[in-house]
Each structure stands twice: as structure tokens, then as C-alpha cells.
Design a protein around this nucleic acid. Sequence first.
RNA 1: GGACGGGUACCCAAGUGGCUAAAGGGGGCAGACUGUAAAUCUGCUGCACACAAGCUUCAGAGGUUCAAAUCCUCUCCCGUCCA
Length: 374
Amino acid sequence: MDFKVLYQDTRTAARSGLLTLDRGVIQTPIFMPVGTQGSVKSLSPKDLEECSAQIILANAYHLFLRPGLDIIREAGGLHKFISWHKPILTDSGGYQIFSLALLRKVKDEGLDFQSHLDGTRHFLTPEDVVRVQQALGSDIMMPLDECARYPVSFEQAQRALERTTLWASRSKKEYDKDRCSAHGSPKGVLFGIVQGSTYEDLRKRSAVELTEIGFEGYAVGGLSVGEPRGLRYNILHATLAHLPKDLPRYLMGVGLPEEILEAVSLGVDMFDCVVPTRYGRNGCAFTSQGKITVRNGEFSHDQKPIDPECGCYCCQNFTRSYLRHLFNAGEILGLRLLSYHNTYFFLDLMNKIRQAIKENKFRELKDKFCGVPC
RNA sequence: GGACGGGUACCCAAGUGGCUAAAGGGGGCAGACUGUAAAUCUGCUGCACACAAGCUUCAGAGGUUCAAAUCCUCUCCCGUCCA
């Protein structure tokens, strides 16, 4: 893996660069559409290419439970299985510790959980989780971490952070083992995940400890879980200050367009979020004029495209009136077209961000965008 | 002509003396969604109103009762069956 910052904005910490992986070169800042179960919901790999996706996310936890590693191995790895040949970042399942809280018990040794699908019990160690991701053929692997809910006491946040560091260190050892054994197939890299909730000193400690272990990139986890926005950016800013400047920084699970702009201005390189596809499925579209709920009555006679400034297939061919009709009639095409548009919109925004950084006009872009309610 | 059954809000439909401005669906209107157990979830949906009081409702008209969508009488409509 290689990461090069090519352009540095002079008025903010925003930067643009190239992240080179075995399966492709990624221009940063980048947004990664989320395909938890090996599918960016309702979109085909062809759609994703048309939207100029450079990398997508998949989830090791979900794929481990279903269809299971044997089936993915049989297919020749995740890329072949899902027919997506650009890079894939796999999330470990750390977030599922957070979102499926009722079904799991977190121990230092690993994660004891019950499948949300059939109730079967499983035990996964951080080493297992690295091996699962290696078996999938992941390009960027995330270690098992403990994502604390919000709000959480200092002591609990500290415990989650200590466990995250312990697991990070064990993940790194497991990862190093495999790297020593030489074989020619594409190799994934391993990132670290900073935790520490909204406590600046915990965030600093987490960042420092992970940097000592040494990863190929660093993610900030445990944000956008309900904390106030102002606090979020203070914490993000404080966290980034303790991470290496010459390695990629990934803000996990974020976010809305204005949140991405804010985070880019603080120096974040990578994002992922379910928002474009989930909002799309639920009848909500992002536009250059802000967010609109396409289901709403005001669009029943609106013969304009979702976003007149958008060049996507949906906006070039269909009206708001038709999209609203599709949603009202429960037609599956509606949610697919909106997912397509939203994904295109987010990736186009990232393209504009990169261009603006290159031209040293990022501040102007951000101000223009954040003047619009998202 | 006769015998039953039925007419409840935008639609379907429950309710058979007070706890009913009226269950539940559908439809309509709005909101939420952030490393996806989500094509999901939450509100509102007689009128008026910022809220509260208030006003008008269960085919229509009369009646019984302290109290009626609910009981009685007549009328009008709709279905099914028999002549």
C-alpha cells in the first residue's frame, strides 16, 4: 500500500491524495458506498461503476454468518463472488457489537454472540476476525473494536478503549503472521480504529497507543452515534492531531454531505455511510438545493428531475412526479433509482471536493454547500 | 308482492345503552434514518384551534332514556333468497 498527499488546502486541513492498493488506486477524499452483505442495496456493480465508485464496504460479521466463508472461498473470494473487482474495505463487526447489543457479550478474549439470523452461538476472537477478512480477500481490513454507545461514562469508555487497543494489538500480530508467508495474490492492509467516545484524553490515548502498534491507516470510530455535532468535531479535531499525517484517515460511518465537508476540512480522507442508499430506499433524495422527501405531495405534479444540476441516469431520464408515483405505488424501481441518484450525488460531491482542494478553493465549496440545509 | 341481511369518517370495516369523536386496515399527509437485523420506523388524518374549552357526526325523520351509532316507529336506499 502507498499513500501520497498530492494537494494540501492552505486555509483548512483538507487534503487530496492517492491511495494505492493491489486492486486499484483510490483518489482521496473518498466516499465508500456500504454493501454490508456483499451488495450495495439495490445497486449492481455496473451501477456503482457508473456512479464512479472506487471502493465499497462489506461486513465481515454479516458475511461470516451468511453465506459463510466456505461458500465465498468456493467462489474464489469475495470480489469474484459479488463481481466487484475494485477494492473492498471490510468492516470487522465492531459496529454490530454496538447495534446488536442485546445479542452479545463482550469479553477481553473476544466476542461471544448469538446470531441475529438463527440464534446460534458463536465466539470470535480478534485473530479470527482478521482471518475472516483475509479469507474474504479484503483490501482494507478493520480490526475488531468496541464501539461504545453515547452517552457513556468515562470509565466505560476507557474500558472499551482498552479492549480496543488490546484487540488491535492482537489483530496486528495475526496480520503480520500472514504477511510473512509469501504468496502473490492481492494482499489486504490493516487499519487501526480509535475509540474513546467523547473524552478528549481517551481519544488521544487511543490514537497514541494505536500509532505505537503501527497500522497502515487509521480510522476514527464511535462518532455519529448520537453525540451533539459541536462536540463531534472537537473530538474529531483532537483525535486527528495525534494520528500520522502521512497515512490515510478514515471517519467511520459518516455521514451527511455537510458532515463530510466538515470532516474533510479537518483532514479526513475516507468516509462510508449507509445514508445514500438507506435514505434512497426510504424516499429521500439529496440535491444541490438540499434534501427532499420525494414521497411528499408537493412533488406530485413536479416535472423536474430530482436535481436539475445532476448528471446521473435517474436525473437525466425521470421526473420527481414519476419517482413520487413509484414510491406511492410501492414499485421497487423507485427505491433503486433514488439509491442510484444519492450514491451518484455523494460520489460526485467527493469529486468536487477533490477538485476544489486541488484548486485551493475548498473553503468556497464548503461554504457554498453548508449554506444549503442538508 | 314476501322473507331475511345490511346502510358507521375519503374507502373497507369493528362497535349493539354511558369508559365513543368512534377499534383495526387501506388511502392520504408529514417526520426520522449516519462503520445497514431497516424497500424500515414514528406521528397526524370529522370541524375549529397555538393549546384548552367548543362545535357537528354513525342513511333520513321522529321517539324512549339522566344518557343513543347502539332500543322503538316510520321513510329512503342496497344485497341475498322465495313467489
